[in-house]
Simulated scan of single mutants.
Amino acid sequence: MMTTLALQAPGPDAAFEQGTIERRDVGEHDVLIDIAFAGICHSDIHTVRGEWGEIRYPLTPGHEIAGTVSAVGSAVTRHGVGDRVGVGCMVESCGECEQCKNGAEQFCRRGATFTYNSPDPKRGEGAITQGGYAQQIVVDERFVCRIPEGIGLDVAAPLMCAGVTTFAPLQRWGVGPGSTVAVVGMGGLGHMGVKIAAAMGAQVTVLSRSLDKADDSRELGASDHVSTKDEASMKALRGSFDVILNTVSADLDLGGLLGLLKPFGVLVNVGLPNDDYAFPPSAVIGQSKVVAGSMIGGIQETQEMLDFCAEHGIGATIEVITADEVTEAYDKVVAGDVRYRYVIDTSTIGS
Protein backbone atom coordinates (compact mmCIF):
# COMPACT_ATOMS: atom_id res chain seq x y z
CA MET A 1 0.00 0.00 0.00
CA MET A 2 1.00 3.62 -0.56
CA THR A 3 -0.27 6.74 1.15
CA THR A 4 -1.23 10.19 -0.08
CA LEU A 5 -2.24 13.49 1.47
CA ALA A 6 -6.00 13.94 1.58
CA LEU A 7 -8.93 15.77 3.11
CA GLN A 8 -11.17 13.64 5.31
CA ALA A 9 -14.61 14.19 6.77
CA PRO A 10 -14.53 12.67 10.30
CA GLY A 11 -18.31 12.87 10.69
CA PRO A 12 -21.49 14.39 9.23
CA ASP A 13 -21.24 17.68 11.10
CA ALA A 14 -17.47 18.03 11.49
CA ALA A 15 -15.01 20.20 9.61
CA PHE A 16 -12.68 18.55 7.13
CA GLU A 17 -9.32 17.42 8.45
CA GLN A 18 -6.06 17.09 6.53
CA GLY A 19 -4.15 13.84 6.82
CA THR A 20 -3.17 10.76 4.81
CA ILE A 21 -5.13 7.89 3.29
CA GLU A 22 -4.06 4.57 1.82
CA ARG A 23 -4.09 3.77 -1.88
CA ARG A 24 -3.45 0.33 -3.30
CA ASP A 25 -0.20 -0.33 -5.09
CA VAL A 26 -0.30 0.09 -8.87
CA GLY A 27 -1.43 -3.19 -10.40
CA GLU A 28 -0.83 -4.35 -13.95
CA HIS A 29 -4.01 -2.67 -15.27
CA ASP A 30 -3.84 0.39 -12.99
CA VAL A 31 -3.01 4.03 -13.53
CA LEU A 32 -1.53 6.25 -10.82
CA ILE A 33 -2.78 9.83 -11.16
CA ASP A 34 -1.31 12.91 -9.56
CA ILE A 35 -4.50 14.86 -8.86
CA ALA A 36 -4.34 18.57 -9.66
CA PHE A 37 -7.96 19.59 -9.10
CA ALA A 38 -11.11 18.08 -7.59
CA GLY A 39 -14.57 19.57 -8.02
CA ILE A 40 -17.11 19.82 -5.22
CA CYS A 41 -20.37 18.19 -6.32
CA HIS A 42 -23.55 18.64 -4.30
CA SER A 43 -23.73 14.85 -4.03
CA ASP A 44 -20.44 14.99 -2.10
CA ILE A 45 -22.24 17.15 0.44
CA HIS A 46 -25.32 14.91 0.63
CA THR A 47 -23.04 11.91 1.20
CA VAL A 48 -20.69 13.48 3.74
CA ARG A 49 -23.62 14.83 5.75
CA GLY A 50 -25.31 11.44 5.89
CA GLU A 51 -28.32 12.46 3.83
CA TRP A 52 -28.10 9.55 1.39
CA GLY A 53 -27.77 6.57 3.69
CA GLU A 54 -25.07 4.93 5.75
CA ILE A 55 -21.57 6.42 5.58
CA ARG A 56 -18.31 5.08 6.93
CA TYR A 57 -16.11 7.77 8.40
CA PRO A 58 -13.52 9.09 8.01
CA LEU A 59 -14.36 9.65 4.35
CA THR A 60 -12.51 11.38 1.52
CA PRO A 61 -15.15 12.37 -1.05
CA GLY A 62 -14.69 13.69 -4.57
CA HIS A 63 -15.59 12.27 -7.99
CA GLU A 64 -14.68 15.18 -10.24
CA ILE A 65 -10.98 14.48 -10.62
CA ALA A 66 -8.44 15.91 -13.06
CA GLY A 67 -4.70 15.35 -13.08
CA THR A 68 -1.71 13.78 -14.77
CA VAL A 69 -0.62 10.16 -15.07
CA SER A 70 2.55 9.54 -13.07
CA ALA A 71 2.82 5.71 -13.36
CA VAL A 72 1.11 2.86 -15.18
CA GLY A 73 0.90 -0.88 -14.71
CA SER A 74 2.67 -3.35 -16.98
CA ALA A 75 -0.48 -4.21 -18.97
CA VAL A 76 -1.85 -0.68 -19.41
CA THR A 77 -2.40 0.31 -23.04
CA ARG A 78 -4.82 3.24 -22.91
CA HIS A 79 -2.72 5.79 -21.00
CA GLY A 80 0.90 6.77 -20.53
CA VAL A 81 2.95 8.77 -18.07
CA GLY A 82 2.31 12.47 -18.56
CA ASP A 83 -1.18 12.08 -20.01
CA ARG A 84 -3.84 14.54 -18.87
CA VAL A 85 -6.71 12.49 -17.49
CA GLY A 86 -9.91 12.57 -15.49
CA VAL A 87 -11.86 10.23 -13.23
CA GLY A 88 -15.56 10.52 -12.54
CA CYS A 89 -18.10 8.75 -10.37
CA MET A 90 -16.98 5.14 -10.98
CA VAL A 91 -13.73 3.24 -10.60
CA GLU A 92 -14.77 -0.38 -11.25
CA SER A 93 -17.48 -2.63 -12.69
CA CYS A 94 -17.70 -6.28 -13.72
CA GLY A 95 -17.08 -5.55 -17.41
CA GLU A 96 -19.00 -8.69 -18.37
CA CYS A 97 -22.72 -8.00 -17.92
CA GLU A 98 -25.02 -6.63 -20.61
CA GLN A 99 -24.89 -3.10 -19.25
CA CYS A 100 -21.10 -2.98 -19.01
CA LYS A 101 -20.72 -4.35 -22.53
CA ASN A 102 -23.18 -1.71 -23.78
CA GLY A 103 -21.14 1.11 -22.24
CA ALA A 104 -23.45 1.71 -19.27
CA GLU A 105 -21.08 0.70 -16.48
CA GLN A 106 -23.04 2.83 -14.02
CA PHE A 107 -25.81 0.22 -14.26
CA CYS A 108 -23.55 -2.81 -13.87
CA ARG A 109 -25.69 -5.82 -12.92
CA ARG A 110 -23.22 -6.78 -10.20
CA GLY A 111 -23.01 -3.20 -8.98
CA ALA A 112 -20.55 -0.52 -10.01
CA THR A 113 -17.84 0.49 -7.57
CA PHE A 114 -18.18 4.21 -7.01
CA THR A 115 -15.25 6.52 -6.46
CA TYR A 116 -15.86 6.91 -2.74
CA ASN A 117 -17.85 5.17 -0.01
CA SER A 118 -18.07 1.87 -1.94
CA PRO A 119 -16.65 -1.48 -0.81
CA ASP A 120 -13.07 -1.70 -2.07
CA PRO A 121 -11.92 -5.34 -2.01
CA LYS A 122 -8.75 -4.47 -3.94
CA ARG A 123 -7.54 -2.60 -0.86
CA GLY A 124 -8.53 -5.31 1.57
CA GLU A 125 -11.60 -6.79 3.21
CA GLY A 126 -13.78 -4.15 4.84
CA ALA A 127 -12.07 -1.23 3.06
CA ILE A 128 -14.04 1.46 1.24
CA THR A 129 -13.07 3.57 -1.73
CA GLN A 130 -11.74 7.04 -0.99
CA GLY A 131 -12.22 9.84 -3.48
CA GLY A 132 -10.48 12.74 -5.13
CA TYR A 133 -9.99 15.33 -2.40
CA ALA A 134 -6.43 14.03 -2.33
CA GLN A 135 -3.14 14.31 -4.15
CA GLN A 136 -3.01 10.86 -5.76
CA ILE A 137 -5.37 8.08 -6.74
CA VAL A 138 -4.96 4.61 -8.30
CA VAL A 139 -7.65 3.62 -10.82
CA ASP A 140 -8.15 0.79 -13.31
CA GLU A 141 -7.31 2.14 -16.77
CA ARG A 142 -10.83 1.37 -18.04
CA PHE A 143 -12.22 4.09 -15.80
CA VAL A 144 -9.73 6.80 -16.69
CA CYS A 145 -10.66 9.29 -19.43
CA ARG A 146 -8.39 11.41 -21.58
CA ILE A 147 -8.73 15.18 -21.11
CA PRO A 148 -8.07 16.77 -24.50
CA GLU A 149 -5.65 19.63 -24.92
CA GLY A 150 -7.42 22.96 -24.88
CA ILE A 151 -9.34 22.28 -21.67
CA GLY A 152 -7.60 23.39 -18.49
CA LEU A 153 -7.45 20.73 -15.80
CA ASP A 154 -9.20 23.08 -13.38
CA VAL A 155 -12.25 23.64 -15.60
CA ALA A 156 -12.20 20.01 -16.76
CA ALA A 157 -12.58 18.50 -13.28
CA PRO A 158 -16.34 19.25 -12.95
CA LEU A 159 -16.97 17.83 -16.42
CA MET A 160 -16.33 14.37 -14.97
CA CYS A 161 -19.71 14.53 -13.21
CA ALA A 162 -21.61 17.75 -13.97
CA GLY A 163 -20.55 17.63 -17.61
CA VAL A 164 -21.60 14.06 -18.38
CA THR A 165 -24.71 14.27 -16.18
CA THR A 166 -26.08 16.98 -18.47
CA PHE A 167 -24.52 15.85 -21.75
CA ALA A 168 -25.89 12.29 -21.56
CA PRO A 169 -29.64 13.08 -21.44
CA LEU A 170 -29.35 15.91 -23.96
CA GLN A 171 -27.65 13.53 -26.37
CA ARG A 172 -30.02 10.66 -25.63
CA TRP A 173 -33.13 12.74 -26.32
CA GLY A 174 -31.82 14.07 -29.61
CA VAL A 175 -31.06 17.69 -28.81
CA GLY A 176 -29.58 19.46 -31.82
CA PRO A 177 -30.10 22.37 -34.22
CA GLY A 178 -33.71 23.51 -34.10
CA SER A 179 -34.41 21.97 -30.67
CA THR A 180 -35.95 24.06 -27.93
CA VAL A 181 -34.56 23.27 -24.48
CA ALA A 182 -35.39 24.60 -21.03
CA VAL A 183 -32.88 24.17 -18.22
CA VAL A 184 -34.41 24.34 -14.74
CA GLY A 185 -31.92 25.78 -12.27
CA MET A 186 -28.68 27.68 -12.86
CA GLY A 187 -26.26 25.94 -10.54
CA GLY A 188 -23.40 23.49 -10.95
CA LEU A 189 -25.42 21.21 -13.20
CA GLY A 190 -27.64 23.82 -14.79
CA HIS A 191 -24.86 26.04 -16.08
CA MET A 192 -23.28 23.04 -17.81
CA GLY A 193 -26.66 22.11 -19.29
CA VAL A 194 -26.95 25.58 -20.79
CA LYS A 195 -23.44 25.49 -22.29
CA ILE A 196 -23.80 22.02 -23.75
CA ALA A 197 -27.33 22.42 -25.11
CA ALA A 198 -26.37 25.70 -26.77
CA ALA A 199 -23.28 24.09 -28.30
CA MET A 200 -25.49 21.32 -29.67
CA GLY A 201 -27.41 24.00 -31.56
CA ALA A 202 -30.50 24.27 -29.38
CA GLN A 203 -32.39 27.40 -28.44
CA VAL A 204 -32.03 27.43 -24.65
CA THR A 205 -34.20 29.04 -21.97
CA VAL A 206 -33.25 29.03 -18.30
CA LEU A 207 -36.04 28.65 -15.74
CA SER A 208 -35.01 29.90 -12.32
CA ARG A 209 -36.69 31.25 -9.18
CA SER A 210 -35.18 34.69 -9.75
CA LEU A 211 -33.63 36.86 -12.43
CA ASP A 212 -30.35 37.26 -10.49
CA LYS A 213 -28.41 35.13 -12.96
CA ALA A 214 -30.12 36.29 -16.14
CA ASP A 215 -26.99 37.98 -17.50
CA ASP A 216 -24.94 34.86 -16.76
CA SER A 217 -27.48 32.67 -18.55
CA ARG A 218 -27.21 34.70 -21.72
CA GLU A 219 -23.42 34.83 -21.54
CA LEU A 220 -23.35 31.02 -21.30
CA GLY A 221 -25.54 30.60 -24.38
CA ALA A 222 -29.18 30.89 -23.33
CA SER A 223 -31.51 33.06 -25.39
CA ASP A 224 -33.81 33.76 -22.45
CA HIS A 225 -33.99 33.54 -18.65
CA VAL A 226 -37.44 33.38 -17.04
CA SER A 227 -38.44 33.55 -13.40
CA THR A 228 -40.65 30.63 -12.43
CA LYS A 229 -42.44 33.04 -10.06
CA ASP A 230 -43.59 35.16 -13.01
CA GLU A 231 -46.95 33.57 -13.77
CA ALA A 232 -47.54 35.51 -16.97
CA SER A 233 -44.16 34.58 -18.43
CA MET A 234 -44.55 30.93 -17.47
CA LYS A 235 -48.02 30.83 -19.02
CA ALA A 236 -46.60 32.25 -22.24
CA LEU A 237 -44.12 29.37 -22.40
CA ARG A 238 -46.76 26.61 -22.40
CA GLY A 239 -46.15 24.13 -25.21
CA SER A 240 -42.74 25.62 -26.06
CA PHE A 241 -40.07 23.00 -25.40
CA ASP A 242 -38.90 19.72 -26.87
CA VAL A 243 -36.79 18.91 -23.80
CA ILE A 244 -36.77 20.24 -20.27
CA LEU A 245 -33.66 19.39 -18.25
CA ASN A 246 -34.51 19.64 -14.55
CA THR A 247 -31.29 20.00 -12.57
CA VAL A 248 -32.90 21.00 -9.26
CA SER A 249 -32.79 18.70 -6.23
CA ALA A 250 -36.01 20.09 -4.80
CA ASP A 251 -39.69 19.25 -4.84
CA LEU A 252 -41.07 21.07 -7.89
CA ASP A 253 -44.45 21.24 -9.61
CA LEU A 254 -43.78 18.68 -12.31
CA GLY A 255 -47.30 19.08 -13.65
CA GLY A 256 -46.55 22.72 -14.37
CA LEU A 257 -43.27 21.87 -16.05
CA LEU A 258 -44.93 19.22 -18.19
CA GLY A 259 -47.33 21.87 -19.42
CA LEU A 260 -44.37 23.70 -20.95
CA LEU A 261 -43.54 20.76 -23.24
CA LYS A 262 -44.62 20.31 -26.82
CA PRO A 263 -46.45 17.08 -27.70
CA PHE A 264 -43.98 14.16 -27.47
CA GLY A 265 -41.67 16.31 -25.36
CA VAL A 266 -39.58 14.94 -22.50
CA LEU A 267 -38.91 16.20 -18.99
CA VAL A 268 -35.57 14.75 -17.85
CA ASN A 269 -34.74 14.86 -14.16
CA VAL A 270 -31.10 14.78 -13.07
CA GLY A 271 -31.58 16.38 -9.66
CA LEU A 272 -32.55 14.06 -6.80
CA PRO A 273 -35.07 15.52 -4.32
CA ASN A 274 -35.85 13.88 -1.01
CA ASP A 275 -39.58 13.39 -1.65
CA ASP A 276 -41.40 11.55 -4.44
CA TYR A 277 -42.35 13.32 -7.64
CA ALA A 278 -46.07 13.89 -8.16
CA PHE A 279 -48.00 14.82 -11.30
CA PRO A 280 -51.42 13.95 -12.77
CA PRO A 281 -51.43 11.17 -15.37
CA SER A 282 -53.25 13.48 -17.77
CA ALA A 283 -50.12 15.68 -17.87
CA VAL A 284 -48.30 12.98 -19.85
CA ILE A 285 -51.07 10.96 -21.48
CA GLY A 286 -52.82 13.90 -23.15
CA GLN A 287 -49.96 14.76 -25.50
CA SER A 288 -47.75 11.66 -25.28
CA LYS A 289 -45.16 13.35 -23.09
CA VAL A 290 -42.37 11.60 -21.23
CA VAL A 291 -41.01 11.94 -17.71
CA ALA A 292 -37.49 10.51 -17.57
CA GLY A 293 -34.47 10.37 -15.34
CA SER A 294 -30.77 10.17 -16.05
CA MET A 295 -27.74 9.28 -13.93
CA ILE A 296 -24.22 10.29 -14.98
CA GLY A 297 -23.03 8.33 -18.06
CA GLY A 298 -20.84 5.44 -19.08
CA ILE A 299 -17.10 5.74 -19.67
CA GLN A 300 -17.34 5.93 -23.47
CA GLU A 301 -20.06 8.56 -23.14
CA THR A 302 -17.90 10.52 -20.70
CA GLN A 303 -15.05 10.52 -23.22
CA GLU A 304 -17.44 11.67 -25.94
CA MET A 305 -18.52 14.52 -23.67
CA LEU A 306 -14.90 15.58 -23.05
CA ASP A 307 -14.15 15.52 -26.77
CA PHE A 308 -17.32 17.52 -27.47
CA CYS A 309 -16.40 20.10 -24.85
CA ALA A 310 -12.89 20.44 -26.26
CA GLU A 311 -14.26 20.89 -29.78
CA HIS A 312 -16.60 23.66 -28.60
CA GLY A 313 -14.29 25.32 -26.08
CA ILE A 314 -16.42 24.37 -23.09
CA GLY A 315 -15.23 24.08 -19.50
CA ALA A 316 -17.02 24.54 -16.23
CA THR A 317 -17.32 28.03 -14.75
CA ILE A 318 -15.42 27.66 -11.49
CA GLU A 319 -14.00 29.23 -8.35
CA VAL A 320 -10.72 27.62 -7.30
CA ILE A 321 -10.31 27.21 -3.53
CA THR A 322 -7.70 25.86 -1.13
CA ALA A 323 -8.00 22.85 1.15
CA ASP A 324 -8.65 25.14 4.13
CA GLU A 325 -11.74 26.55 2.43
CA VAL A 326 -13.61 23.32 1.72
CA THR A 327 -15.71 23.16 4.90
CA GLU A 328 -16.96 26.72 4.32
CA ALA A 329 -17.50 25.98 0.64
CA TYR A 330 -19.95 23.18 1.52
CA ASP A 331 -22.19 25.67 3.32
CA LYS A 332 -21.94 28.10 0.43
CA VAL A 333 -22.95 25.43 -2.10
CA VAL A 334 -26.03 24.58 -0.04
CA ALA A 335 -26.88 28.29 0.11
CA GLY A 336 -26.41 28.62 -3.66
CA ASP A 337 -23.48 30.98 -3.16
CA VAL A 338 -21.13 29.74 -5.90
CA ARG A 339 -20.80 30.51 -9.59
CA TYR A 340 -20.82 27.77 -10.55
CA ARG A 341 -18.54 25.07 -9.20
CA TYR A 342 -15.96 25.11 -6.44
CA VAL A 343 -12.78 23.31 -7.44
CA ILE A 344 -10.11 22.34 -4.92
CA ASP A 345 -6.47 23.00 -5.73
CA THR A 346 -5.17 19.75 -4.25
CA SER A 347 -1.61 21.04 -4.06
CA THR A 348 -2.77 23.03 -1.01
CA ILE A 349 -3.54 19.88 1.00
CA GLY A 350 -0.98 19.62 3.75
CA SER A 351 0.55 22.99 3.01
Score class of each variant (00 low, 15 high):
residue 295 M to I: 13
residue 269 N to Q: 15
residue 231 E to G: 00
residue 154 D to F: 09
residue 129 T to G: 04
residue 339 R to W: 06
residue 276 D to Q: 14
residue 22 E to R: 00
residue 59 L to N: 03
residue 296 I to Y: 03
residue 91 V to F: 00
residue 284 V to F: 07
residue 201 G to F: 03
residue 163 G to Q: 12
residue 235 K to N: 15
residue 324 D to K: 14
residue 322 T to L: 10
residue 255 G to I: 08
residue 76 V to R: 10
residue 106 Q to G: 14
residue 167 F to Q: 04
residue 95 G to N: 12
residue 122 K to F: 02
residue 282 S to D: 05
residue 221 G to F: 07
residue 348 T to A: 13
residue 160 M to K: 12
residue 122 K to D: 03
residue 340 Y to T: 07
residue 321 I to S: 10
residue 309 C to K: 14
residue 154 D to C: 11
residue 346 T to F: 08
residue 294 S to Q: 03
residue 173 W to E: 02
residue 121 P to W: 05
residue 222 A to M: 10
residue 270 V to Q: 12
residue 233 S to C: 01
residue 306 L to Y: 07
residue 224 D to C: 12
residue 319 E to D: 13
residue 77 T to M: 11
residue 202 A to N: 01
residue 201 G to I: 03
residue 243 V to F: 00
residue 331 D to A: 05
residue 174 G to K: 14
residue 181 V to G: 00
residue 123 R to Y: 01
residue 43 S to Q: 08
residue 101 K to M: 12
residue 54 E to A: 13
residue 114 F to H: 11
residue 208 S to H: 11
residue 115 T to G: 08
residue 274 N to V: 12
residue 90 M to I: 14
residue 343 V to R: 05
residue 236 A to I: 10
residue 50 G to T: 13
residue 193 G to L: 15
residue 279 F to G: 02
residue 173 W to G: 00
residue 189 L to E: 11
residue 8 Q to H: 06
residue 216 D to I: 11
residue 35 I to A: 01
residue 81 V to D: 06
residue 309 C to T: 09
residue 182 A to P: 11
residue 127 A to H: 01
residue 133 Y to K: 01
residue 346 T to L: 11
residue 214 A to P: 04
residue 218 R to M: 10
residue 130 Q to P: 04
residue 248 V to N: 03
residue 121 P to I: 03
residue 26 V to I: 13
residue 115 T to W: 06
residue 14 A to C: 09
residue 265 G to T: 00
residue 200 M to N: 00
residue 22 E to S: 00
residue 208 S to D: 15
residue 55 I to V: 15
residue 103 G to Y: 01
residue 172 R to W: 07
residue 97 C to F: 07
residue 102 N to C: 08
residue 137 I to V: 13
residue 311 E to A: 15
residue 236 A to M: 08
residue 202 A to E: 00
residue 9 A to S: 14
residue 157 A to R: 12
residue 112 A to M: 03
residue 11 G to T: 02
residue 141 E to Q: 15
residue 266 V to F: 04
residue 116 Y to P: 09
residue 177 P to S: 12
residue 196 I to T: 01
residue 344 I to M: 15
residue 281 P to E: 04
residue 191 H to F: 07
residue 15 A to I: 01
residue 217 S to M: 11
residue 122 K to A: 03
residue 151 I to N: 10
residue 206 V to M: 14
residue 110 R to V: 05
residue 232 A to Y: 06
residue 96 E to N: 10
residue 289 K to N: 01
residue 342 Y to Q: 10
residue 127 A to T: 01
residue 187 G to N: 08
residue 267 L to M: 13
residue 66 A to R: 13
residue 245 L to H: 08
residue 199 A to P: 09
residue 237 L to N: 14
residue 31 V to G: 00
residue 266 V to C: 04
residue 89 C to Q: 03
residue 168 A to Y: 04
residue 308 F to A: 12
residue 340 Y to V: 08
residue 234 M to T: 11
residue 282 S to I: 11
residue 57 Y to E: 03
residue 215 D to F: 02
residue 305 M to Y: 10
residue 334 V to E: 14
